[in-house]
């Protein structure tokens, strides 16, 4: 199915050739951007918030890219969506292998778990990064949290994503914690309409 989708890819003369850039360019660009944010904002908390907001804007666009190309991905409920993010999203968009675990207990019958963790060890955006003293509060990869939050928001799931473990701070792996706040599937037709 996806192979056929690829063969449908347009090859008009005006369309840009699909070239991959080196991931070092991406890593260094991201580093420069974080550095600039640290320069522009007063506090590290503001930088963390800005990285999260940037990520959310990326995620809200990226979700369609992901859904259009990864066919057969299920995202009807929080469990399958989180699973897709970790297994397919991290692999196809970041090139790393991630696992999901630490599902919360199902709160009430049928609604499924409402929190889980995504674990991964490799992280290309931190390849050359050593956090200096004084920036212990910086959540360097907060953009990933934002991307996940923004992407899931587009499909009606409002989640909070926080970095629980960060290898830049000496942890043995990275862990992002996802918590589902609200799942409102379709918005239209609005029930409170007159």
């Amino acid at each position: 199915m996806s192979a056929r989708g690829a063969s449908n890819a347009p090859r008009g003369s005006q369309l840009p050739a699909q070239e991959k850039v080196s991931n070092e360019l991406f890593t260094l660009t991201y580093g420069a951007m974080v550095r600039q944010l640290l320069h522009d904002f007063e506090t590290v908390e503001e930088v963390n918030a800005e990285l999260d907001a940037m990520g959310a804007r990326i995620g809200s666009r990226l979700v369609d890219d992901f859904l259009a190309n990864a066919q057969g991905v299920r995202c009807a409920d929080f469990k399958s969506a989180a699973d897709s993010v970790a297994r397919v999203g991290f692999r196809s968009l970041l090139g790393v292998t991630a696992r999901v675990g630490a599902w919360s207990e199902t709160s009430d019958a049928g609604s499924g778990p409402s929190a889980c963790s995504i674990y991964f060890e490799e992280n290309p955006i931190t390849d050359f990064v050593e956090l200096p003293r004084g920036l212990e509060e910086l959540s360097y990869c907060n953009v990933l949290c934002g991307v996940i939050r923004g992407a899931l928001e587009q499909i009606g799931m409002h989640v909070t994503v926080v970095v629980v473990k960060d290898m830049l701070k000496g942890a043995d792996g990275n862990e992002l914690r996802l918590t589902l706040k609200e799942h409102a599937a379709e918005t239209y037709p609005f029930k409170d309409d007159d």
Binding site: G5, N8, A9, P10, D64, D65, L67, A68, N69, Q71
Partner: peptide, 9 residues
């Protein structure tokens, strides 16, 4: 589906 992919891209 191909139109959707082009839209995303």
């Amino acid at each position: 589906q191909a139109v959707y992919a082009a839209y995303a891209k």
